Amino acid sequence: MSNLRIIPRLDIKGKNLIKGVQLEGLRVMGDPNDFALRYYEAGADELVFMDIVASLYGRNNLSDIISRAADQVFIPITVGGGIRSTDDARHILRSGADKVAINTAAVSRPELITEIAHHFGSQAMVLSIEAKLVAPGRWEVFTDNGRERTGLDVLEWAVKGVTLGAGEILLTSVDREGTRKGFDVDLVRKVSDAVTVPVIASGGMGTLDHFVDAAAKGRADAVSMAHVLHYKTLTLGDIRARALAEGLGVRQI
């Protein structure tokens, strides 16, 4: 069994790292590369960079930030936001990313998942799913930072995405994102049980207990967090130590 991965998430607007609540109400945190380097040196297993205004520009604008990060950070980097074609994916991968995360474009043209997996390998094709609870035990896929409804059922879409070639799922609970109230463990567990590829739980971490819940109860293969790290509420060392104490299979450093 592979290690449970600890993945800081960096949401980017323009040249700045920002943080919001439920993907809105954004605050500027600083230079994303400073944070990326700090998290790398503190033992992050991977990093996720999201261009959260890419839909406004029609393309991902992180190539400069990613190429700078790739020069000093030697762990896998996933980049998402505004990637709409294999050419867009190629551009980001050539900038230094290891994987691309796709949400809106995959919803509008699901065959893009297959095309990217075919060109760059399934391991480079991450299906990003923004989920909102719409009825007890039922979640709908949203796009554009949780603003646009799609009518798609999250579990059905996750299964279809993997069938089409996605090698990993980045699962963000829009309801929980930035709230520090904990992950939507029920959502994480149901998606993890439904697919055969790794699932990254994202959205809601506020305490070490939340991390443990996402991994142990949600059966996530990786856990992503932003607020607790950006505001220094917790450190990556705190998270790793607690995971080891709970017997969760994280990398020892």
Rank of each mutant, 00 (worst) to 15 (best):
S224K: 02
T196W: 11
A89H: 05
F49W: 01
D184Y: 09
A105N: 06
G14W: 01
L56V: 14
I169C: 08
A216N: 06
E168P: 14
K181A: 09
P8T: 13
Q252N: 11
G249R: 15
G204C: 06
A36F: 12
A241C: 07
A222P: 14
K19S: 09
E130Y: 03
R38N: 15
G81R: 05
V48A: 10
Q252V: 15
L37V: 15
L171T: 03
V250Q: 02
D31N: 14
I75F: 01
T172H: 01
K132Y: 09
I75D: 00
V21H: 00
M50F: 13
A131Y: 12
T78N: 01
K132D: 09
L93S: 13
Q22H: 11
D213Y: 12
Y40V: 12
D45C: 04
G204N: 08
A243P: 02
D98P: 06
R5T: 10
K99H: 04
G25R: 13
A42G: 05
V162A: 01
D144S: 10
L164V: 04
I65D: 05
I52N: 07
I102K: 09
I239Y: 03
P32A: 00
V223S: 02
I200A: 12
T172V: 02
R149T: 15
A89Q: 03
H227M: 05
G43Q: 04
I83A: 10
S108L: 12
V188A: 02
G249Y: 11
R189F: 10
S192M: 12
E246A: 14
I77V: 10
S122C: 07
Y39D: 08
N33H: 05
Y231A: 08
D209V: 05
A243E: 00
V100T: 05
G137T: 03
F211H: 01
L234M: 08
V195R: 07
V28K: 11
V162E: 02
